[in-house]
Each structure stands twice: as C-alpha cells, then as structure tokens.
Amino acid sequence: MKVSEVMTRNVETITPDQPVSEAAGFMLSADTGSIPVLENDRLVGMITDRDIAVRGVANGRGPDTSVRELMTSDIVSVRDTDDVSEAAARMSEAQVRRVPVVDSDERLCGIVSLGDLSRETDGNNAALALEGVSQPGGQHQQ
C-alpha cells in the first residue's frame, strides 16, 4: 500500500514569517499538534505545539515571534509513492509521530501520522513506527 492511499490531504500550512500565535490558532482549529511550514510553495520546516511551548514560551518568546525562529527545519518527509512500511520505518528511525508527504516535485501533498497508519493498514506499520517513537531519544524534531 502506498502512502498516498493513507495520508491526510488538505493540510493547513503556514509561512515562516507568520507569528507563532497564528500557528497555534491553526493547530487549535484543526485539532492537530503540528503544521508544515511552506516558503515559495516549498516545504521548509514543521512547527509543533511543543516547539511553541519549549523553544518559545519556556525561553520567554512571545506570540509575535516568527514561525521561522521556532520551527524545525531539518525535517523528515516521505514521498506519496513510498510504501507505507517505508514511511513507518522512517518515522521509527526519526522518532516522529507524523511526517509530511511530498510529491515528485517536492511539493507538499499531505501528512501521514501514526493514526493514519493504524486506521488504514493491518497495524504492523503503526506498531513499527510507534516502537521507534517510544524509545528514549535525543534532540526533539518535528
């Protein structure tokens, strides 16, 4: 099964120059913990609720801080044509719960999450991804 068959489409995005208060508002309305960051129609990062809380608020940053200042720019992504087992393995290795999905032109076309893997596959792929996510890790990423 391909990632394109299980991913969530029509993902809310934000630009690096928007304030983190807007990112937080998007997360609230979409009931999600992360938003892909696009610049000139290209994926340049991810911002998470954790980025806002830990890199932002805990360090005295206010709601007008730009997304660029708090986002993770070294992101893991998968292709829409990748097999879901490959996506699960990448999520496990990177210890992330969700990854942006790009097409052959490197344009964002969706997100695949642990929930997508557990709902749409036999559960083995979600278990593989969750195994890595559950391991003690190093630096926080996406």
Rank of each mutant, 00 (worst) to 15 (best):
D74C: 10
G132Q: 05
L130E: 00
A87N: 02
H140M: 11
T8Y: 00
D74Q: 10
A23P: 00
A94S: 08
D80S: 07
E106N: 12
M46A: 00
K2T: 01
S92N: 12
V101R: 00
E93S: 06
Q139M: 05
D105M: 01
A53H: 08
P100D: 03
R55Y: 06
V96D: 00
L114W: 15
G123L: 11
G33M: 14
S4I: 11
T72S: 11
V20Q: 05
I14A: 02
P16H: 09
G45D: 11
S66L: 15
S113H: 11
A94M: 04
A94R: 09
S113K: 07
Q141N: 10
C109K: 03
D51W: 14
V78L: 01
D31V: 02
V44Q: 02
G60T: 09
Q95L: 02
S66D: 05
V37T: 05
P136Q: 11
V44P: 10
V133N: 03
M1K: 05
E5W: 02
D49S: 12
I14F: 03
R68V: 05
L108M: 11
S118P: 08
E120C: 13
D41F: 09
K2R: 05
D116I: 02
R98N: 10
M46E: 01
Q141F: 02
T65I: 13
S134H: 07
E86V: 02
Q142Y: 09
R107F: 03
N40V: 14
N40A: 11
A94P: 02
R107S: 08
N10G: 04
I47L: 08
T121L: 13
D80V: 04
R97N: 12
L114K: 11
T72W: 05
P19G: 15
S4C: 09
S4K: 15
S66I: 15
